[in-house]
Amino acid sequence: MEGSKIAVQVDDLTVAYNYKPVLWDIDLTIPEGVLMAIVGPNGAGKSTLIKAILGIIDPIAGSVAIYNEPYEKQRKKVAYVPQKGSVDWDFPTTALDVVMMGTYGKLGWIKRPGKKEKKAALEALEKVGMLSFKGRQISQLSGGQQQRVFLARALVQDAAIYFMDEPFQGVDATTEIAIINILKELRKANKTVIVVHHDLQTVPEYFDWVTFLNVKKIATGPVKDIFNDDNLTKTYGINYKVAVNQ
């Protein structure tokens, strides 16, 4: 990755809930074009890190730059897939309509989505294999299908950087493979993909970059260099034996 641009630069980021820090002084440099996993135990602040980078939560200290500019100026370069459980799936809307929401950012205030946006949304649905479900009410979709719809919504944002909060949570094996294939395609197109991930076993297989996080940053870098017992132990506090395919 030498010589490549820096997609995300985080400096001295500290986030607190009720004056209790959940992220301490995080420095993080994410080069362009990596497929990165953020791993760490429950309560390590993985989701919080993403949310703070995206300005959903205000940090109490530190700064974030997306391609050398503050986030507010770079919104259109960023796509976000929140945790599936963070929304109410009984909301009266269809799969297609949820994907259309991905186009709202580029439209800006007041302007409505038109034919162009609908076409983009249909293409994204097709990419995730959900075209035949476009008119389905979202509560009538299975967990894996809901996750695919979320992914399609991010694809339609046509961003440079994708942030995903546990996209593999509660999905079956087929959906997991479908999702990871799309993420790998994004990386091939030189997009940067940052994923909060739980399954340590699949890190070497799915990702080429990894960040270990547990309130503080433990390590960040290429999977082949730093995904080892030492860092796993530092992050999870117990001796983790994970087979690393070097």
Partner: peptide, 22 residues
């Protein structure tokens, strides 16, 4: 009429709404 899509997205998914700039 003016803010239908903003109302919809912020009601359904506040996180996304914030990321999109609404």
């Amino acid at each position: 009429f003016a803010f239908f899509k903003e109302l919809k997205v912020s009601t359904f998914d506040a996180g996304l709404s914030s990321v999109l700039g609404f």
